Simulated assay, not measured.
Amino acid sequence: MPPKGPKRLDEIADVELDGVGKFKYIQILVKDKVRGDSKLVIRGYAHCAYHADILDEVKSSSPSGFTFTCPGGGRIDLSHEDKTIFIFGYSQAYGQPDHRKSVDIVKKYYPDYEVTYSNEGY
Rank of each mutant, 00 (worst) to 15 (best):
M1Q: 05
M1S: 06
P2T: 09
P2A: 13
K4C: 14
G5F: 12
P6V: 04
R8E: 14
L9M: 13
D10I: 11
D10C: 11
E11C: 13
E11H: 11
D14A: 14
E16K: 13
E16Q: 13
G19T: 07
G19N: 09
G19F: 10
K22H: 09
K24S: 06
Y25T: 00
Q27L: 12
Q27G: 08
Q27P: 00
L29E: 15
V30P: 14
V30F: 14
K31N: 08
D32L: 09
D32N: 15
V34F: 10
S38Q: 12
L40H: 08
V41K: 09
I42N: 04
R43W: 04
A46P: 01
A46R: 14
C48I: 00
A49H: 04
H51T: 04
A52M: 04
A52I: 11
D53R: 02
D53F: 01
D53W: 02
I54W: 01
D56G: 12
E57F: 10
V58M: 15
V58S: 12
V58C: 12
V58Y: 12
K59H: 00
S60R: 15
S61M: 13
P63W: 00
G65M: 07
G65L: 08
F66Q: 12
F66I: 10
F66T: 09
T67P: 08
T67Q: 08
T67V: 05
T67E: 15
F68R: 06
F68C: 03
T69E: 15
T69V: 14
T69W: 03
C70E: 03
C70W: 04
C70H: 03
P71C: 05
G72R: 07
G73T: 01
G74K: 04
R75I: 01
I76Y: 03
I76F: 10
I76D: 02
D77T: 06
D77Y: 13
H80P: 01
H80G: 00
E81F: 06
D82G: 00
K83F: 04
K83P: 07
I85T: 02
I85M: 11
I87N: 10
F88I: 05
Y90P: 00
S91M: 01
Y94S: 01
G95P: 09
P97H: 01
P97I: 00
P97D: 08
D98P: 01
D98C: 07
V103G: 03
V103R: 08
I105H: 10
I105V: 15
I105R: 12
V106F: 03
K107P: 03
Y110C: 02
Y110T: 02
P111C: 05
D112E: 13
D112Q: 11
Y113P: 01
E114A: 10
E114G: 13
E114W: 03
T116L: 08
T116P: 05
S118K: 07
N119C: 03
N119M: 05
N119V: 08
N119F: 05
E120I: 06
